[in-house]
C-alpha cells in the first residue's frame, strides 16, 4: 500500500458517497446515466468473484470489494425504483452493447491465464475503462451538468488516474509487486478518456463556474 493507491481508493469511496448524497438530497437521479451504473455493477461483480475463491488477502481488500459491489447494487436499486420517474432514458442512449462486446473480445484475446476467473477479471478491467462513456455521452448531449454530478465523475476518474503513480511507485520500490499489464494499459486508456472532462472540470468547476461544454 502506498499513498497514491490509498488516495485512489479513497477517491472511489468519495465518488460513491457523492452520487448517493446527490440522489438522496435532490430526490432525483437526473443527469446520472443508468447505463453507466449498470456497467459498473457488472464490472465489480465480475472482478470480485475472487471473494469466493482466492485466498484471503486482507480485511481492507475484502471490505472494499463488498462496499463497491453493495453500493453499486444499491444505486441501481434506487435508480430503478424510488427515483425512476426522474431518469430520462431518452438522453441515456449510448449503445453499451459495443462496450460489453469489445471488453469481452479483449478479455478473450489477452487474458492473464486461460481460466474463467482470469478472463472475467480482464473483462472487468476493460469494461471499467469505458464504463463512464454513457455518462460522458449524456453530459455531452445536454451540453452541461450539475456541479455535484461533475464532482462525482471527477472523483470516479481520479480513482484510476491515481493508480498510475501507484504503479510507478510499485514498479520502483515494491520488489515483490508484479505489474499487471492489462490493468496498466486499461488504466491509461481510461484516464485518457477522461482527459477532456478533467480539463473542463479543472478550468470551470474548480473556479466556481458551471460545467458547460464550449
Amino acid at each position: 500500500m502506498n499513498i497514491f493507491r490509498m488516495l485512489g481508493d479513497l477517491s472511489h469511496l468519495i465518488s460513491i458517497f457523492i452520487l448517493l448524497h446527490k440522489m438522496q438530497t435532490s430526490k432525483s437521479c437526473s443527469g446520472v446515466s443508468f447505463k453507466s451504473q449498470v456497467l459498473y455493477l457488472v464490472v465489480y461483480v465480475f472482478r470480485y468473484l475472487d471473494l469466493f475463491t482466492n485466498p484471503f488477502m486482507s480485511y481492507y481488500n475484502t471490505l472494499m470489494k463488498i462496499v463497491f459491489i453493495a453500493s453499486s447494487a444499491y444505486t441501481i436499486y434506487l435508480m430503478s425504483t424510488v427515483f425512476k420517474p426522474t431518469h430520462d432514458p431518452a438522453i441515456d442512449t449510448f449503445k453499451i452493447e459495443y462496450l460489453l462486446g469489445g471488453s469481452l473480445v479483449m478479455a478473450l484475446l489477452f487474458p492473464p491465464k486461460w481460466t474463467f476467473m482470469e478472463i472475467s477479471w480482464a473483462f472487468s478491467i476493460w469494461l471499467e475503462s469505458v464504463a463512464i462513456l454513457p455518462q460522458l455521452f449524456m453530459v455531452q448531449r445536454t451540453g452541461e451538468a450539475e456541479t455535484i454530478t461533475t464532482h462525482y465523475i471527477f472523483a470516479l476518474g481520479a480513482y484510476r488516474a491515481l493508480y498510475i503513480p501507484n504503479w510507478i511507485w510499485r514498479y520502483m520500490f515494491d520488489k515483490k509487486a508484479k505489474l499487471e499489464t492489462i490493468a496498466v494499459v486499461a488504466g491509461l486508456a481510461q484516464t485518457l478518456l477522461y482527459s477532456d472532462f478533467f480539463y473542463i472540470y479543472w478550468t470551470k468547476v474548480m473556479k466556481g463556474k458551471k460545467f458547460q461544454l464550449p
Binding site: 472511489h12 482466492n54 481488500n61 470489494k65 492473464p112 491465464k113
Partner: peptide, 10 residues
C-alpha cells in the same frame, strides 16, 4: 502447482 496471478488491487 503453478501460481495464479493475484489481483491485489481494487
Amino acid at each position: 502447482v503453478e501460481e495464479q496471478p493475484a489481483h491485489d488491487e481494487l
